[in-house]
Design a protein around this nucleic acid. Structure first.
Lengths: 330, 330
DNA sequence: CTGTTAGCGCTTTCAG
DNA sequence: CTGAAAGCGCTAACAG
């Protein structure tokens, strides 16, 4: 493994010059730049990012913070998309990534967390699915110790951006499509998720707006994003509803299976666009979020912040889909 | 953020002493040890792992190499288990981990890969699901540039360990159980996976041994680990078989759904123990592998190697299960 | 048992 | 435009 030293010697320049070339700093003649690049090529030189991070006060090392919910496998799908989206994008941009789970920070106070991250030369943070209860994490964000991007939360300030889809509109759209496609949909049963997160706010607004607009009766039950709970709620309230709108695909699947067991049919729709929907038994509309693209965007956004950009609220596109078994298998 | 320097000053000792305490080196009196630990506590000191890695020739930085198959979501479940198992275990042991995907190394020759990893001060490698075709990766392993652990492959030498379950026995067991539970099972249809990996060898041996022992007729078709392919094969050959043994849950699901569509019943069994099995429509036996535990074991094993241990072949336990919808939902 | 010192590979002033 | 030199935070001989 050759070092910047070897390159410098090989090219007949000083190591600081090599460093400048490496980082595309101005003030290096084309001629020396070529010499250096040739040396880099010949020696198969790969810069040591650790050394760079240690030395520099503004390295491109970021941490991904995931709230793994190891109980539910569909979440695996989403988390894996988040992870691979971010890791791939970071790799393209030569950023270093470390992956952390919320569970590792449990019991830790904000200063500890900050210390830990700083000790790793972390300068950027991407936080997936923070909820109101994660107080210490909020403190970390507010400390502005890091350039951070939150996915699925409305936190924005000078050094914090948020990335997500338009929850309200998405919920409105998918429910509307489902309702308009079926006749006699007057009574809506809405299975919502946990309210400590931030996504439910928009989704609830969306379904409320729709129901007002179309003059529908709306019953809201908290399914806690749980398939089991949704199933139970459907057994209990499903008969009286004309359509069941769910705040997650998981719940949609639970609801649909309950309906099938009860041998009655009502249209159901979900939210997320996970592949499991293809196994649900009946097709349903859902909102497809491109999690890996969302995550890639988040990476680009921390880079934006690290380059001095302002925090902002980024709304990404989504689409309505219907996942058929035949389409999803491979 | 305080440094080892601050701690030294605070404790009234030299930084090397602090370092010794940090790394549990021998030759430090209890007294000074206490002083140092107290200082560490008071300053909320967290050692900078980057600096340690840079300085030391044997840091505990490892890379996880995953062969993401982004087409199939059940793989997401397995990969996520692998990842979280390894990352959590590494965190406990204060090891740094970076995550890489095979796709990032495509087109790269072994020396490049080695260079890249060395530049990151990587000393350990965990490789998940390598196949015979990954020549460059094999070259990396053989170079012994890193202490590596392969999951699901039989590669073992001085600095390489392998971690997996007993593929042959597992396949034998699950098929036997399925066959013995049903009467008149004489004709076995075995849907195998791609043969460029290493896991199929053992599994094929297992099913062959069983068929010889019980004097059953065995037809093997290559389902390529594909649900779609398994479905097609079942449509084609399913009628003539008494039982369908599959080398993956995915294929088992495809096979089962095909049978249901054809409205005939034959017992089917799978391999892996993914939750999706709960959605299959009918219950099947399968081999449950505890992927996150396997992965945690792999982390422990690289540590073993990094501490000078010899490479070895580690066989982990598995169990036979039957995943019911009611049991897996939550 | 403790402290001094020379790096690890790179960035970043600051002179020239 | 280029180079010398001082660190970044830590480890590891080596003296004492």
């Amino acid at each position: 493994m050759s070092s910047i030293h070897d390159v410098a010697k090989h090219a007949g320049v000083a190591i600081s010059t090599v460093s400048k070339v490496l980082n595309h700093y101005p003030g290096v003649s084309e001629e020396t730049k070529d010499k250096v690049n040739k040396a880099i090529e010949e020696l198969q030189f790969v810069p040591n990012t650790l050394a760079a991070a240690l030395s520099s006060k503004q390295s491109a090392r970021i941490a991904l913070l995931l709230n793994l919910n190891s109980q539910t496998q569909a979440i695996d799908e989403i988390d894996m998309q988040y992870l691979s989206g971010a890791i791939n994008e970071a790799r393209k941009r030569n950023m270093d990534v470390i992956t952390l789970f919320f569970s590792m920070l449990k019991e830790k106070k904000a200063p500890e967390i900050i210390n830990y991250l700083k000790a790793q030369s972390i300068h950027g943070l991407i936080i997936y699915g923070i909820s109101r209860e994660d107080e210490q994490l909020h403190a970390v964000i507010e400390s502005e110790a890091f350039k951070t991007v939150v996915v699925d939360s409305p936190i924005v300030n000078r050094s914090v951006s948020s990335v997500w889809i338009d929850q309200e509109q998405a919920q409105y759209d998918v429910a509307k499509k489902t309702i308009l496609e079926n006749e006699n949909c007057h009574k809506i049963l809405y299975l919502s998720g946990k309210e400590n997160g931030y996504i439910m706010e928009g989704r609830l607004k969306g379904i409320r707006r729709l129901c007002e607009e179309l003059d529908l009766s709306l019953t809201i039950k908290n399914g806690e994003f749980s398939e089991k709970k949704a199933r139970e709620l459907t057994f209990r309230y499903g008969k009286d509803a004309d359509v069941i709108v769910c705040a997650s695909d998981f719940m949609a699947i639970g609801a649909m299976r309950a309906l099938i067991e009860m041998d009655i049919f009502h249209p159901v729709c979900g939210f997320d666009g996970i592949r499991l929907m293809g196994y649900a038994g009946k097709q349903m509309h859902t909102v497809r979020q491109n999690f890996s693209e969302i995550s890639a965007q988040a990476v680009r956004e921390v880079q934006h912040l690290m380059e001095g950009g302002q925090g902002r609220n980024l709304i990404l596109p989504h689409e309505l889909v219907r996942l058929k078994y035949e389409d999803i298998i491979c």
